[in-house]
Amino acid sequence: MIEPIERKKISEQVLIQLKQMIKDKTFPVNSKLPSENELAKMFGVSRVPIREALRVLEAGGLIQSKQGGGTIVKEVILASKLEPVTFEMVDIEQVYELLEMRSIIETEAASLAASRRNKDELQSIYTALKQFENTVENVSIIGYEADYHFHHQIVKASDNRFLMGVMENLSDLYHGTLVYSLTKNVGMRRKREQVYQEHFLIYEAIKNQDPEEAAHYMKQHITNVRLKLDDSRLDHK
């Protein structure tokens, strides 16, 4: 099916190209960007859309205006700021590291949840599972809130305040990686159904109070995310 051609604002088109030029290091970290006039000439547009695009980049933490004039490209660190405009610019190795950490924490959390969960906690995990199931029907949305809620309820059921503290303290990072990975499933019902099925198997293992199965399915679930993102760290295992 052919989709309608989008008519993007000039400033949005400039923004897309500037982000790509920063990402591919045409404008490397700590380098000075060309002036507004120079950028306007480069893109063949007026200064107005250039200024709008630069404002978005600065709000997202990709660039910084210096006193005395000039704008420099900032280094994007995953653990600092996660607005949508910045997350896609981080070094993919940082995403891999975060997913590796999630695998360690959540595999054990799932095992503990299977051993320790009570009826109310199991019901909360089930409710979160059904919320994610609803996103399968609407493939146009990302569904990261429902995904995060499911994982959050499992860690909560582990009955370990430190595991819970780590997840809550890093909630922005969790959301960031979920948005990053689930965006690749938007419009792809089969992929979304696969993620739901993985969640379902984790839930069933916790419901059946089987710690080994719960850990296995959680590790498998996060490994599949890492495979989807071509995590090079998996090659060493």
Rank of each mutant, 00 (worst) to 15 (best):
A205V: 04
R192V: 12
E36M: 14
S140A: 13
E83W: 12
K219M: 08
P28G: 06
G68F: 05
E145W: 08
L112Y: 09
S80A: 13
S115T: 13
E3I: 12
I77N: 09
E36Y: 14
M89C: 04
K66A: 10
K32N: 12
Y144D: 12
E3T: 15
A79F: 12
Y96K: 09
D24G: 00
N160R: 05
A128K: 01
E52L: 13
V48I: 14
V85R: 00
L98P: 00
L178T: 05
V136N: 08
Y174C: 08
I2L: 13
E12C: 02
Y174R: 10
N37Y: 09
N169Y: 07
G70D: 04
T26D: 02
Q13P: 00
A59E: 15
R192T: 08
V14D: 03
D24V: 12
V45C: 09
R190G: 00
I142D: 05
E193K: 13
T127V: 11
Q131V: 01
E121W: 02
I77A: 07
H151T: 02
T71F: 03
P49Q: 04
D231Y: 01
G69P: 08
V76I: 10
M164Y: 11
L227W: 08
I206G: 07
L227D: 08
I22W: 05
I22H: 03
K184V: 04
Y180V: 02
I22P: 03
K130W: 09
Y203V: 08
F200L: 13
E97F: 09
Y96H: 11
K74H: 01
D91S: 05
A53D: 06
V195W: 07
S115C: 07
E133A: 13
G70R: 06
H149S: 14
D91W: 00
S124E: 15
N160D: 11
E83T: 15
F162K: 06
Y144A: 12
V56L: 12
V56P: 02
M218K: 09
L54K: 08
I105R: 01
P34L: 02
N30D: 14
L18V: 09
V45N: 01
G187M: 03
Q131F: 07
S35C: 05
D231Q: 03
E58M: 12
I77Q: 07
S232W: 10
